[in-house]
Write a protein that binds this DNA or RNA. Structure first.
Lengths: 230, 230
DNA sequence: TCAAAAGTGTTGAGTTTACACCCATGC
DNA sequence: GCATGGGTGTAAACTCAACACTTTTGA
């Protein structure tokens, strides 16, 4: 075969959630043709490095963050000119970070790193805006059939926070009673003894996602599902 | 950045279904370190070629086949030594072919091309056996929430064929009445005037998947779903 | 005592499951 | 006339959706 002139990159779409608002992590490029442009964290894969290690490395180098949840999203390689310099195929990863990870430090490899509300993303370089669309779609659909919402919340959370997360991300209303009944019926969240240090209103119990129970149930054919009507 | 020494390949897992049996398309390598070994069809991506075009090209070159359905499956690039020669990242595609496509001609680039029952796959090169596992999983889960079963059948089919396809692939029993009721209730299959040229028993009506209706419904929030109990 | 958020059951509608017999054809 | 596969309805069980008032706390 002739010499292949294609480079492989990884990119990460990291979602965070705070104050009823969904955020995406972006970095401002320090070098290259898009210096000072906001883009998704990511970069080229080293020749002896696993793809998933490359993403984790870039996230650390560019934003000083470690994520809760990471899965491959899609490989973007049909548009030959998505990078103006040369052919780049990018393996995009979908990631979730909880509020404890909201502190960023733009590290060696980025000029800046910041969370942007999904509804207010600046103009991005490359095809990153459309990659975010794909990731957002994935987030919405996964939320209804996998318990990934918990990875966007603190370890201990109020039911109302979980409710709001679902409402916000799925842009949908919830019947609080039915929602609570449903989630509790799964038996995958444990009630803690603690109460929230509330700001207003009656204090609420704090809950905690029990991943072990979930995994056990899943092995027995249990299927998590939250359907919210439009 | 240093010079990256990674090659990009595509591989295709093409499923076919005939006589209550699920098949996978394999080719026997003509060149290279695994000459005469069975592997998935696939090969290196050209520098100016879209990934999806590369798969289609390889399928034509190696097996003379055009598929009904093609989607990206997963990118295998965590195992650095999955190819013994050098680092290869492979973007795997999931494909479906209907019985009309069962005739293959091993073309220029393969020594041989054949359908193998999924239950009787020979020893494969590289990590292709595990790629097939991932694809098989995808097939099983997609079958229950997307109408892809139709892409494995002839254009006009008997209800019993659809039933058997679901039973076989999902390894599950079906209540024929309930299954028919469900599928018909969606309004996405049309009854034709024709009857099957049967081998034995009462002749059955032939049906046809109405993709236009399905797409229209989907845009209005319709959600295909077939759940078979274990 | 008021504002704010947490907590809590019941009923009707709709969906899903279970189940068995007759029909049309070729041999 | 028999073997083979095609075609069909109903009732019970279950799941989902709709709905509103009381409780606890801080200010």
């Amino acid at each position: 075969m002739d010499t292949q002139k294609i480079k492989i990159a990884v990119d990460a779409i990291v979602f965070g959630y705070r104050n009823n608002c969904l955020y995406v992590l972006l970095i401002k490029q320090k070098y290259g043709p898009l210096k000072n442009t906001w883009v998704l964290p990511g970069g080229f894969v080293k020749s002896d490095e696993a793809l998933s290690d490359a993403v984790k490395r870039e996230l650390k180098e560019e934003a000083g963050i470690e994520v809760n949840y990471l899965e491959q999203l899609y490989t973007f390689g049909d548009d030959i000119h998505r990078d103006p310099r040369f052919r780049v195929v990018s393996v995009a990863y979908f990631a979730l970070a909880d509020p404890a990870k909201f502190d960023l430090r733009a590290d060696t490899d980025a000029e800046d790193a910041q969370w942007f509300p999904l509804s207010d993303i600046p103009k991005l370089g490359y095809d990153h805006a459309s990659i975010i669309q794909v990731a957002h779609q994935r987030l919405k659909s996964k939320l209804s059939y996998q318990p990934i919402g918990f990875d966007l919340l603190e370890k201990e959370f109020l039911f109302s926070e979980l409710e709001n997360l679902y409402c916000t991300i799925l842009e949908s209303d919830i019947d609080r009673r039915n929602f609570r009944k449903k989630i509790l019926s799964f038996g995958i969240v444990d009630e803690t003894a603690k109460m929230s240090a509330q700001s207003a209103g009656r204090p609420g119990k704090l809950f905690r996602f029990n991943k072990k129970k979930y995994n056990a149930l899943e092995r027995n054919g249990f299927h998590f599902e939250i359907n919210l009507r439009k």
